Amino acid sequence: MPNKKLRVHDMLARIQEQLHYSGCISDYDWGMYQYAFRSVLELLKSKFRGTSKCRISGWTKQELLSLIQPHGRNSLLNLYQTLVINLYYDSFVTPPVKTQLGPKNFYCCYCNATASFQKFDKLNRRQGNYGYICDGLCDASVSYHEGDKMPMGTLADEPLRKLRDRAKKAVDAFAIKSGLGLTDAYGLMAERMGLSMVDIPIARLDFEQCEAYLRSIESLKTLSKNKRFDYLKYLGISKGEE
Rank of each mutant, 00 (worst) to 15 (best):
D135E: 15
Y132F: 14
R164E: 11
Y132V: 01
R161P: 04
N105H: 04
F117C: 03
S116C: 12
A156T: 05
S143I: 10
L101P: 12
Y132G: 03
L137W: 11
P96Q: 12
N112D: 14
I133Q: 03
R161Y: 00
L155T: 04
K149Y: 00
R73F: 04
P96W: 07
F92V: 06
R73D: 06
T94P: 00
L160H: 07
Y107S: 06
Q81Y: 04
A113M: 09
P96H: 12
K98M: 13
Y88E: 05
F120T: 06
D135G: 07
D90F: 06
K104Q: 03
K119P: 09
Y110R: 09
P96S: 12
C109Y: 02
T94R: 14
N129P: 00
R126I: 01
K162A: 14
K104A: 00
T94V: 08
L79D: 00
M150K: 05
F117A: 02
Q100P: 00
C111Q: 00
M152C: 11
C108K: 11
L77I: 08
N112Q: 15
G131E: 00
A113S: 15
L155I: 11
N112K: 15
Q118S: 13
Y88F: 15
N105R: 13
G136C: 06
P151Y: 01
N112R: 14
K98A: 13
D165I: 05
Y88Q: 08
A140M: 01
P96F: 08
Q100C: 05
Q118A: 13
T99Y: 03
V142K: 04
L79W: 02
V84A: 07
R73Q: 13
D157F: 02
L83T: 06
N112C: 05
Q127F: 15
S141W: 02
L87M: 07
Q100G: 04
A113C: 14
D139H: 12
Y89C: 00
F92A: 01
F106Q: 02
Q127D: 12
Y89P: 00
T94C: 02
G128D: 13
R73S: 08
P103C: 07
V93G: 05
T94W: 05
I85V: 15
N105M: 11
Q100T: 13
R164T: 12
A156N: 02
Y80S: 01
T82S: 07
D90C: 07
G147C: 07
S141Y: 08
L155H: 09
L79M: 08
T114F: 09
R73C: 04
D157Y: 01
P159I: 12
Q118H: 10
N105W: 02
G147T: 06
D165W: 13
H145T: 09
Q100S: 14
C134H: 08
L83V: 04
N105Y: 02
S91A: 06
